[in-house]
Simulated assay, not measured.
Amino acid sequence: MIIPGKNPNTPASPIEAKTQDPFAHLREQDKDNKGSVPSLIPFEASGTVDLDKVDEVNKFGNHSARFKGTNNETGEPMEMWMNTKKDLVIYGNTLPDPIDPKQVTGKVWHAIVYGTVYTNPETNRKKFYFDCLVLDIEGGPLQQSIKPRDFSKNPLLEQ
Rank of each mutant, 00 (worst) to 15 (best):
E16S: 10
V57G: 08
K31E: 13
Q143V: 04
T116V: 09
G140F: 05
R27K: 15
G69L: 03
V108F: 03
I112Y: 00
D100K: 09
D21N: 15
A45Y: 00
T105L: 04
M82G: 07
T94C: 03
K126N: 12
L157H: 05
I99H: 09
S36R: 14
Q159R: 07
K126E: 14
M78C: 13
S145L: 01
S46P: 03
I3S: 04
N62G: 00
I2K: 09
F128R: 15
V104L: 04
P98F: 08
Y91R: 09
Y91I: 02
Y91G: 13
K68P: 04
N72A: 14
F43A: 09
N33R: 08
W81Q: 10
P96H: 11
K102R: 15
T84P: 09
N93I: 02
K68Q: 13
G61Y: 01
I2G: 05
V113L: 06
K59N: 12
K85D: 06
P4Y: 04
P14V: 05
N124D: 12
P42F: 09
D87Y: 00
M80P: 00
L157M: 04
D52M: 11
L156R: 12
T119C: 06
K102N: 14
S46F: 07
P38Y: 05
N124L: 04
Y114R: 13
E44L: 07
Y91M: 13
I41T: 15
V89M: 04
P96Q: 13
T70W: 00
V108W: 01
N33V: 11
T119E: 15
S36Q: 12
T116K: 13
L135G: 03
D100N: 15
S36M: 10
F43G: 10
R66D: 07
K18Y: 11
N120E: 13
H25C: 00
T123I: 00
T105F: 02
D55M: 06
M80A: 13
N93S: 13
K86H: 09
T10Q: 05
I3V: 12
I2Q: 10
G115W: 03
I41M: 04
L88Q: 07
